[in-house]
């Protein structure tokens, strides 16, 4: 896979994806109000499993190439869901510290970007490594600074 710079299609999809994340966190937060964080994540994974099964079945019925058997994936690659599920539990723990929600979110984003830098540099977990440019560094600084401004001084600060 060639190391491409993001083009407008990637940008559109990523922004839509970020928008979906906002909606998902909103709904799952509502779900958590009826139970707890564990129930919220468990229920979301249950409805997600059903939705994914239906979507895959539809793709299969429409004769779309559901899976091009390119190569056999390593077994550990199936375990991304455990990391995702653990995220929810650790998030609710981190929010209930003196950091509160805003601090936990801001540090979470910092951790995510730091990990992604390491992942691209060394090509962690079977994905290709990528070189970082000065422009990438500028984008990181601007996007993180903007996010910190919104999270720490914009939301709920009024």
């Amino acid at each position: 896979m060639p190391a491409t710079r993001p083009n407008p299609l990637h940008l559109l999809l990523a922004f839509l994806s970020g928008g979906l994340l906002t909606l998902m966190i909103h709904f799952n937060g509502e779900l958590g109000r009826y139970g707890n964080a564990l129930f919220s994540s468990w229920a979301a994974h249950a409805t997600g499993s059903i939705a994914a099964t239906i979507l895959l079945a539809l793709l299969y019925l429409l004769h779309q190439p559901v899976a091009a058997p390119l190569s056999k994936p390593p077994l550990w690659a199936y375990l991304g869901g455990i990391s995702g599920a653990a995220t929810v539990m650790l998030t609710s723990a981190a929010v209930n510290t003196p950091l509160a929600l805003t601090g936990a979110i801001a540090l979470g984003l910092a951790g995510q970007v730091t990990f992604s830098l390491a992942a691209d540099k060394w090509g962690l977990f079977g994905l290709p490594s990528r070189k970082m440019t000065l422009r990438d560094a500028g984008a990181i600084v601007l996007i993180l600074a903007g996010s910190a401004l919104v999270i720490l001084f914009g939301k709920g600060a009024a």
Binding site: A14, Q112, V113, S116, R130, D136, I140, G146
Partner: peptide, 16 residues
């Protein structure tokens, strides 16, 4: 890549 994906999704998440 991981960095671009993280950054663009974070941008979309914060703005939305």
């Amino acid at each position: 890549g991981a960095v671009n994906t993280a950054l663009l999704v974070i941008g979309g998440q914060i703005i939305s």
